[in-house]
């Protein structure tokens, strides 16, 4: 067989049959392991839903759903407990609304500036700063809200209590600003150049091009950015836990302190949570509400983002 030099060479580089067998086996094994790793994420979701739902069911054996959804007092740890989620929702919504009223307009303006105005060099320098801002631990923002922003606000607003929703709301707004900015900017930059050039060719100014052409074209992506920002504001914990106090308070007044869904969970966790106690069950019930809220926002945001990805 190996009489010619060609044959000898070929023999030298021919893979051994058992090497090929081993290779095929490793290939299959790798595929299985990789698939299993990808499937883990599905089990995480199943785990979250299972835990939240099963523990909430125990909660609703003791508390009627009507009380949970209609009562306006939340005192689960009192001797005479009351389980109306509205005080937690009012706190969550008020802080989120303050945060969004800062993050959305500023984020949108900054996104317009970054995508339509800023020279590439500025953009390249600014992006890392925004990423850094995003990387600061939330507990540091909480400290900042309590120790710096609240005293500052008190100088302008006499009588503002040490724990209030305004200060954490503002700080949270700055905290999620990079997030809304980068999502909106992504959406705007996905708008094809031809659309912009068409507007410029008609004599549109930059500002008009941005307002009349780019934003309408990117509207689904920008809306997605707002909704995802909302999801993040609703789920944020530490800033509020530190600076808004942890007292459930049915109010929409930003000058007052209040608890949110997340801070209530923190408050209970800081105490002694015995499994089976009503306090323990209640954090899963409000956790389920929080999860459903963010899930709704995330799904809407996901679908809107998919839409602009498909459009271009």
């Amino acid at each position: 067989m190996l009489n010619t030099p060609d044959d000898q060479l070929r023999a030298a580089v021919t893979p051994a049959p058992n090497f090929l067998r081993k290779r095929a086996m490793i290939d299959k094994l790798a595929r299985c392991i990789l698939f299993a790793a990808a499937a883990v994420s599905v089990f995480v979701t199943i785990g979250i839903v299972y835990i939240l739902v099963s523990e909430s069911l125990v909660f609703f054996e003791n508390v009627s759903l009507t009380e949970f959804l209609t009562s306006t007092t939340w005192t689960p740890l009192f001797a005479a407990p009351s389980f109306g989620i509205w005080p937690l929702l009012s706190g969550t919504l008020t802080v989120s609304a303050i945060a969004l009223s800062i993050a959305i307009p500023l984020g949108l303006l900054l996104a317009i500036y970054m995508s339509e105005y800023a020279p590439p060099k500025v953009r390249e320098a600014v992006k890392p700063v925004l990423e850094m801002l995003e990387g600061v631990p939330t507990i540091v923002y909480g400290y900042f809200a309590l120790m710096m922003v609240t005293p500052l606000l008190q100088a302008f607003i006499p009588g503002l209590p040490g724990f209030n929703m305004l200060s954490p709301g503002i700080v949270m707004g700055i905290m999620i600003l990079p997030y809304t900015t980068s999502l909106s900017e992504d959406a705007m930059r996905a708008v094809p150049r031809e659309l912009r050039e068409g507007a410029y060719a008609l004599g549109y100014s930059r500002f008009y091009t941005a307002i009349k052409v780019v934003i309408p074209a990117a509207i689904s992506g920008i809306t997605a950015a707002f909704i995802l920002a909302m999801s993040r504001a609703v789920g944020e914990t530490m800033v509020v836990a530190i600076a808004a106090g942890q007292m459930a308070n049915f109010t929409f007044n930003p000058m007052e302190g209040a608890a949110t869904i997340t801070t209530f969970i923190v408050q209970v966790s800081l105490g002694d949570v015995r499994h089976g106690s009503i306090g323990y069950q209640s954090i899963f019930a409000v956790g389920l509400v929080l999860f459903l809220m963010t899930l709704l926002f995330n799904v809407i945001g996901f679908m809107l983002r998919r839409r602009y990805r498909l459009a271009y």
């Binding site: 030298a12 580089v13 893979p15 051994a16 090497f19 090929l20 081993k22 290779r23």
Partner: peptide, 8 residues
């Protein structure tokens, strides 16, 4: 590279 892929 091709030889490595063939296990040589």
């Amino acid at each position: 590279a091709g030889l490595r892929i063939r296990g040589i």
